[in-house]
Design a protein around this nucleic acid. Structure first.
Lengths: 131, 131
DNA sequence: TGTTGACCTGGAGTCGACTCCAGGTGCCAT
DNA sequence: ATGGCACCTGGAGTCGACTCCAGGTCAACA
């Protein structure tokens, strides 16, 4: 079974050594085994967990939520409903944020168009002033 | 000229007294004048600034950026290009974030649909596992 | 043998935007 | 004169996700 040191893992994942140690410190990764001289020895299993973490992070899950997901991942048969709940909450959250930001985007766009068209004054400031 | 104490302002704006003092502490508001006994006396001008801050915050400007906007607001003739630049950077930022989140939204939606259709296993975990 | 360089530890610092706290003053009503 | 409330100050604490640091160990190479 191939073993990796922390430097290998930073190359493979792009995560910094500090981040890897941090994940272990907060219990997101179970304690990684050490060599006699105390050096971390990561296995494929750990790499798979880290990749999972990275993908879940891209999906806007917090490290705390990812901790839960990792537990569910370990025993999948019990977890379906919980995972679904978590994902569906996250979807609602993301949808709300998309809507807010999209409204905002339209406003900013409008303001910029006004600003390009206008000769004097600053329509952006004025708009924020008196919306 | 009507004067307001901090409690009036929290009622008018919904900002907490701590937040109002904090804005002053970080220089976002110029030092608010005090009564003989040291009590803050806000004027209409301050309220107008605070409303500006609140609206700009809704547009995703950071307090630092809002500080800049407030300066530009004080002398509008010089500021047009800078304001436009700030707004246009912000627009780009917001657009990028909208796109990211919208992609994410679609993925989560897909995952949830799969999850509803599937009888065994958990397609969400599996998907994060092996995307 | 000496010096890199990768690694280890526990703990502190960072960012932004607050929020909370202890200890104190001012003023009004009972 | 006593209680209570709104207010003051400087400073510390909070959140999440890192990032940085000092001081120490270990292995390989010139």
């Amino acid at each position: 079974m191939k073993l990796y040191r922390i430097g290998d893992i930073t190359n493979l994942t792009g995560l910094s050594a500090d981040t890897l140690r941090y994940y272990e410190k907060i219990g997101l990764l179970p304690r990684v085994s050490r060599s006699v001289s105390g050096i971390r020895q990561y296995e494929e299993r750990d790499i798979s967990r880290l990749r999972f973490i990275q993908r879940a992070q891209k999906m806007n899950f917090s490290l705390a939520e990812i901790g839960d997901l990792l537990k569910m991942r370990e025993n999948p048969q019990h977890a379906r409903d919980e995972v679904r709940q978590l994902a569906s909450d996250k979807l609602a959250e993301v949808e709300e944020r998309v809507n807010e930001l999209d409204t905002l985007r339209k406003e900013l766009q409008l303001l910029l168009n006004l600003c390009r068209a206008s000769e004097d004054g600053c329509p952006i400031i004025e708009k924020i002033d008196s919306k």
